[in-house]
Design a protein around this nucleic acid. Structure first.
Length: 925
DNA sequence: CTGCTAGCATA
DNA sequence: GTATGCTAGCAGA
């Protein structure tokens, strides 16, 4: 069977343009898209076996769709000049590489592809369409498959079903319902992929949906009925035309699509002009082989060869040992500063980094700054180094004043590694950094959240470069010196390298942020970092006196407990030492160790669960438990929090780590405000010290059962969806189903068991885990689980699907496309593998919840800003947002905050957020 | 002084 | 059973 390979040139042109760094030819013309498309073609040539081929582009001018619908593509921004300039060179290279090129006026590239695929299939060909455009999925048949060369994804019929939830034959109907924002094709408002799939499953086709439109309930139903008159037009717009007349272009039919010999001379000329050095060498070799003397190669070094190494798989790039010449310059004189400023003023985007006196963003003072806008060239501007014999530096205040306009200009694009930190540092000097367009920390996190993201590791992984580490120049531990004491030459080498490497990392990682990963990066992580900065900067007001009083009280109780414990033990010992306690309990007191859990290192555990059991027979363990919980409260919270109050602001400023939790959650440090006690009455008193200033209230809103709702959404289980739709108490509803009783006949124990099952599901439960949690035997736990899955079969299927997907692709995804890799999912070690499976089950739920609340934070922050309100977000605790609200805005916030949170995204289940307000965080619940 | 363990706070 | 961060104690520098 012969194979026809069709390439959607237009789709790749756009994608390459946006995915590639801003490459330039020696003459300064843009070449990124050219490089990307040629790279892709070369890879296809190498990887795919085919007999005939064509590369298809959109032609200039109007198409029949514009005539059908004047507003078609009206939302598209006009083509950037830098892209337009690359079209002709791409066409030239495509032909020189030997690919038949088609661009037919009056239709789009898709239509030509559809027509060729149809004709070829009729003539018994196998057809492979290489595209990045999802609309083309409608062309898939048993003989027509898609391949996305940028992500290495292939789609056959089963793949289309897996990806979209509908077979290729329903893709047109699916796209019609959803509509297309970019092309301005109206669909049904509020109808996204999930709803479209649901309807098509229920009614079989778009016509079926239209027929049954009257039956669809709720707001979406109304929106559907509103959309009805528009749908036939939308269907026409999204339908790829498969009968384009190609007689003029292909008089011989498919025989005109034979791959031709490459034109080495044209290629060599073009590669030289564009500055593609590696390919130029290759082309010159071809010329030499064919006996034609190569023209002399000159021109400056091009950068292109450094990215992707000329054909790496973007998912697992092999770093090419870079051979970038380094030119690192130190700025010490007015003339050098002028040179720097001139560069900054004209650079399209600048990599920026600060050097400081401290890692604590609120204590840090500037020591110097580095800048890079061209690979290999970077500037270090020392401002506050001080050591014996330090050369004279530019004046600190005057130089900052000169740089301030550039730093604060939102139209001067900047990128960096964890710029949230640099923003704080500059803010400490009265400068509001603006124009942040990229952050390599967040790029790396979105690409591979399970790996490390420090710059030294990133440079090694993505660039094959070994960088100077901070420890190498500052030492470590007690002997570590401040950056200000580092001599300026060394500092220049270190800091300029940081800016340079960051710039190169951005270039290396951008192409890996394809498709939905780019959306997570652009639409979630980058905007979320702005909100987090603001929250950290605002801080939280803490009632110091109240905590001091609590500390005192706790201290008295602890002394008392201590004395009682010594008496029971018959000797004094350190209650906080698990080792000493173990000796007392199992040695001196001779408590039976049978059935006592061991610690990983072999000793007998004295953790909460163990002590609780022992407390049934002995008085001491109970005392220890009380002591532990009070000691924890005192040492971690009531003693420590007051010490973390910033003397300048009188508030506590946490740092949110945006790139540590593999699932996409945030983490809070210094101090951790995400583990302030809440479960016990005594612990909750700490929250009484989280207060609002006079004239303000604390407002808190938390998502109700967010992870279970996400499970309902992801699994699509009818029973679970219905339970959430009904608004019933979900644990009670689960109990009623599992135990087969009426809702109002559910006992307290049954509800407790159901709650444990629900939580267990989120954590990838096993019968053993559930048995331990509920203190029942394994057989009984298994019975509960079996009954649950019997009642909610969709959930059981979803769990299995997730495990399978994790094993097959090595990662799982959130609703928004965030990826979590599970390196141990194929481990031969059963325990490790089981652990990875549990993580695989938990990650889409925990991760989607994290995505949702980030989206909510972005919305809330934007809304507060747009409305000019004085309320401020001050904390995020995974499913809860806390704000400080002036009394005048209280009612507005209490009304709108839960609405914004619930509207963060539309899932198959309603989202619900519950709000409260009070003088303290405790009172807000 | 540094790095590790056990234990425990949160969602 | 998932995901985190912090503290005290302790052993080995």
């Amino acid at each position: 069977m012969k194979t026809l390979l069709l390439i959607d040139g237009s789709s790749y042109l756009y994608r390459a343009f946006h995915a590639m760094p801003d490459l330039r030819s020696p003459e300064g013309l843009p070449t990124g898209a050219i490089y990307g498309v040629v790279n892709m073609l070369r890879r296809l040539e190498k990887d795919v076996q085919f007999d005939y081929s064509a590369c298809i582009f959109d032609a200039k001018g109007r198409t029949f769709r514009d005539d059908l619908y004047p507003e078609y593509k009206a939302n598209r921004p006009s083509m950037p000049d830098d892209l337009r300039l690359q079209i002709a060179p791409v066409h030239q290279l495509v032909e020189a590489l030997g690919w038949p090129l088609l661009a037919v006026e009056g239709v789009e590239a898709d239509d030509v592809i559809g027509t060729l695929a149809t004709v070829a299939e009729q003539q018994g060909f196998r057809v492979i369409v290489s595209t990045g455009d999802k609309d083309i999925a409608q062309l898939v048949t048993p003989n027509v498959t898609l391949v996305n060369t940028m992500t290495n994804e292939t789609l056959d019929e089963a793949g289309v079903v897996e990806k979209f939830g509908v077979p290729p034959t329903q893709i047109i109907d699916y796209l019609t319902l959803i509509g297309d924002k970019v092309d301005n094709v109206p669909g049904v408002e509020k109808c996204g992929p999930k709803t479209a799939v649901k309807w098509l499953e229920a009614y079989g086709s778009l016509d079926g949906v239209i027929e049954h439109a009257a039956e669809v309930k709720g707001v979406v139903g109304d929106k559907l009925r509103e959309a009805l008159p528009r749908l036939p037009l939308s269907r026409e717009l999204v339908t790829i035309k498969c009968d384009v007349d190609l007689k003029k272009e292909l008089p011989q039919g498919l025989d005109d699509l034979e791959h031709r010999a490459r034109d080495a001379a044209t290629l060599a000329d073009a590669f030289r002009t564009h500055g593609f050095r590696t390919w130029l060498k290759e082309a010159e070799q071809w010329l030499a082989d064919s006996g034609v003397a190569p023209a002399s190669a000159n021109g400056e070094a091009a950068q292109a060869e450094l990215f992707g190494g000329g054909g790496d798989d973007p998912v697992s790039p092999v770093p090419v040992k870079a051979t970038v010449e380094r030119d690192y310059r130190c700025v010490l004189t007015a003339a050098q500063l002028d040179e720097l400023l001139t560069g900054l003023a004209s650079a399209p985007v600048v990599s920026f980094d600060t050097e400081t006196t401290s890692l604590d963003p609120f204590a840090a003072r500037l020591v110097g700054m580095s800048f890079a806008w061209q690979e290999g060239l970077a500037y270090y501007l020392p401002l506050a180094h001080h050591y014996a014999g330090v050369p004279e530096q530019l004046n600190f205040d005057a130089t900052l004043a000169v740089l301030k306009p550039w730093l604060e200009d939102a139209n001067r694009p900047k990128l960096g590694q964890n710029l949230k930190y640099d923003r704080h540092v500059l803010a400490n000097h009265g400068i509001e950094l603006a124009g942040i367009v990229d952050d390599t920390l967040l790029q790396s996190y979105v690409i591979e959240s399970h790996l490390t993201h420090n710059m030294d590791d990133l440079a090694e992984r993505h660039l094959g470069e070994t960088t100077i580490s901070y420890e190498e120049i500052c030492g470590k531990g007690a002997k570590q010196i401040g950056f200000a004491e580092v001599d300026i030459d060394t500092a220049t080498r270190y800091s300029a390298e940081d800016a340079d490497i960051t710039l190169r990392l951005d270039h290396a990682m951008k192409p890996q942020l394809a498709g939905r990963l780019m959306d997570v990066y652009r639409d979630i992580e980058l905007p979320a970092s702005v909100v987090l900065y603001a929250m950290e900067r605002t801080g939280v007001l803490i009632d110091r006196q109240r905590l001091a009083a609590q500390s005192h009280e706790l201290g008295l109780k602890l002394v008392e407990l201590e004395q009682q414990a010594y008496e029971l033990a018959g000797q004094p010992f350190n209650l906080n030492s698990p080792k000493q306690l173990q000796e007392i309990l199992f040695g001196k007191l001779g408590i039976d160790t049978k059935g006592v859990k061991k610690t990983p290192s072999g000793g007998y555990s004295t953790d909460e669960g163990v002590l609780e059991k022992l407390a049934l027979d002995h008085p001491l363990p109970k005392l220890i438990l009380q002591n532990r919980s009070l000691a924890k409260l005192k040492s971690t919270y009531t003693d420590k929090l007051p010490l973390q109050i910033n003397p300048d602001t009188g508030r506590v400023h946490t740092t949110y780590s945006q790139a540590v939790a593999v699932t996409g959650r945030l983490a809070s440090t210094d101090p951790n405000l995400q583990n302030i006690p809440v479960r016990t009455a005594e612990g909750r008193r700490v929250r009484e010290a989280f207060i609002a200033p006079p004239g303000h209230q604390i407002v808190s809103a938390d998502y109700s059962q967010i992870e279970l709702r996400i499970m309902a959404h992801l699994s699509g289980d009818k029973g679970l969806l219905a339970a959430f739709q009904s608004g019933a108490d979900i644990h009670r509803a689960t109990a009623a189903e599992v135990f087969g009783v009426a809702l109002d006949a559910v006992s307290a124990d049954q509800r407790r068991a159901a709650k444990a099952i629900n939580f267990g599901l989120i954590y990838g439960m096993s019968q053993y885990g559930l048995a331990a949690q509920l203190e029942i035997d394994n057989a009984q736990a298994k019975q509960f689980i079996d009954r649950y899955f019997m009642r909610y079969p969709g959930v059981a299927e979803y769990m299995q699907r997730t495990r399978d997907a994790a094993r097959e692709q090595g990662y799982v995804e959130t609703v928004f496309g965030r990826r979590l890799y599970l390196p141990e999912i194929r481990s031969s070690n059963g325990a490790r593998r089981a652990g990875a499976e549990r993580a695989a089950i938990n990650a889409p739920m925990q991760g989607t919840a994290a995505d949702l609340i980030k989206l909510a934070m972005i919305k809330v922050h934007a809304w507060l800003t747009e409305q000019g309100l004085k309320s401020r977000l001050i904390m995020q605790v995974h499913d809860e947002l806390v704000l400080e609200v002036p009394d005048a805005e209280l009612e507005l916030i209490k009304r709108e905050l839960p609405r914004l949170m619930a509207g963060a995204a539309t899932l198959a289940v309603p989202l619900l957020a519950e709000v409260g307000a009070g003088d303290s965080w405790e009172a807000a619940h």
